[in-house]
Every structure is written in C-alpha cells, then in structure tokens.
Design a protein around this nucleic acid. Structure first.
Length: 211
DNA sequence: GCGACAG
DNA sequence: ATCTTGTCGC
C-alpha cells in the first residue's frame, strides 16, 4: 500500500475500493484461528502488531510486529491510511497466512462504508471484521446481557451492531470488513470475548504492540 | 458557522 | 492514541 496520499486522494481511493467489499463468507468458512491487529503510538513511531489466536483454546500461536514512522495524520474516516501500511507489513511477517482479520476499528460502519477493516480485507483478500471501542454512527443501547445487540446505523442505513460482550459493560461496535457476514462476525467476536469486553485477539495485539 | 469525529 | 495505581464493586 502506498504511504503518501493527499486527503482528496485518500477519499477517492476509498470510493474506488468500496465496491470490492463482499458481505458473505467464503463457502464452508470455519476458521480455526483469528488474527488480531492493533497499533501502538509512541513519540516518534508507530508499532503495528498481528497476533494469531487458536479459536479453540485462545492460545497465541503466531505473532509479528512492524515499526515505522508516522506517514499520515489522524483524520476520522481516513484511519486506514495511517495504520494499514504498517499493519500489512506485520501480517506479511506471520509464519502462517491469517484466516480472518479482527481489526481495531470500523468496517462498513464508516461514512463511506469503507473503514479500516474493509480496506484490510480488500487489499489482502482475507475475510475481515471491525471491532471498535467507539462508534461513528448512532445506536440505541443493547440489552444488558452478554450477546445482546442493537443496530448501529448511519444516514438511515444499518452498518453494524452495538454488541454487549460482557454483562452491563459498554458494548463494542462490530461491522463487516470483507468476505464475512454480520452474524458470523458477531458470533466470532462473542467467542473471542468470553471474559473481557474486547476480543482476545485485540488484547493480545495491544499487549504485543506495547513492547 | 459550529460541534462532533474509529485510533 | 497518550499522560497513569490503587481501589471500589459486581
């Protein structure tokens, strides 16, 4: 992925690539692992981390990091242009290609329906989903129980779900990235978050990126 | 024009 | 994102 973009070019790239997004999973999609992506910010650099977790045991089975300078500012809606180049390099360094990418941010729940998770999925061809700690759209609070969810909407469209992964804890915001459907994405996030609010993939990647 | 705005 | 430990409570 190119690293130099003007804001207008970046928006045009999102508009160009958004039509490649697929919202259904591949035939017989039953991943045995999930790969979490996260980026940590320090004074002079970004550290991208990719952690692959065994979905049966939640055990860490592969990981990689990549460090590099900041090449694009933080602009809501253009998150991928800041974090994705480094994340792609981290993914390349994994011993095994990921089966599904769990991104720290939004997928279709984005003003142009092309958040970080969609961008990561389309560029790699790997099924992907987004799990955000905060939403870009509107939502009503889901029920209080683990597994309860409500629609996340933007401009009148349903773009994802506010999902309660732990009882009475702030929901996470799940949306389709690429080659997955929202039900499958929801199930996967719940499976990855048996004990904490955030999926184990994100927690592992966050921890690794802080070193 | 003003505020809000994934990480 | 980041500055930051213990502590209160389910």
């Amino acid at each position: 992925m190119r690293e130099q973009w003007s804001e207008a070019e970046a928006i045009a790239e999102q508009e160009r690539l958004r039509y490649a997004v697929e919202t259904v999973a591949p035939e017989g999609f039953e991943p045995k692992t999930a790969t979490g992506l996260d980026v940590h910010y320090t004074e002079n650099a970004l550290v991208a981390a990719a952690c692959t977790i065994d979905l049966g045991t939640d055990e860490l089975i592969d990981s990689a990091t990549c460090t590099g300078p900041e090449t694009f500012p933080y602009i809501p809606g253009l998150f991928a242009f800041r974090e994705l180049p480094l994340l792609l390099r981290a993914i390349e360094q994994l011993a095994t290609p990921p089966e599904v990418l769990v991104c720290d941010g939004q997928g279709l729940a984005h003003p142009r329906r092309f958040g970080l998770a969609c961008h990561a999925g389309v560029l790699t061809g790997i099924p992907s989903l987004g799990v955000g700690k905060n939403a870009l759209g509107e939502f009503t609070a889901p029920g209080p129980h683990r597994g309860d969810w409500s629609a996340l909407t933007d401009a009148g469209e349903t773009v994802g779900r506010a999902l309660r992964t732990q009882p009475n804890v702030k929901p996470v915001f799940v949306s389709v990235g690429h080659r997955i459907d929202i039900d499958t994405a929801t199930d996967l996030v719940l499976k990855l978050a048996p004990r904490y609010r955030l999926p184990e993939t994100t927690r592992q990647a966050d921890q690794l990126s802080r070193r």
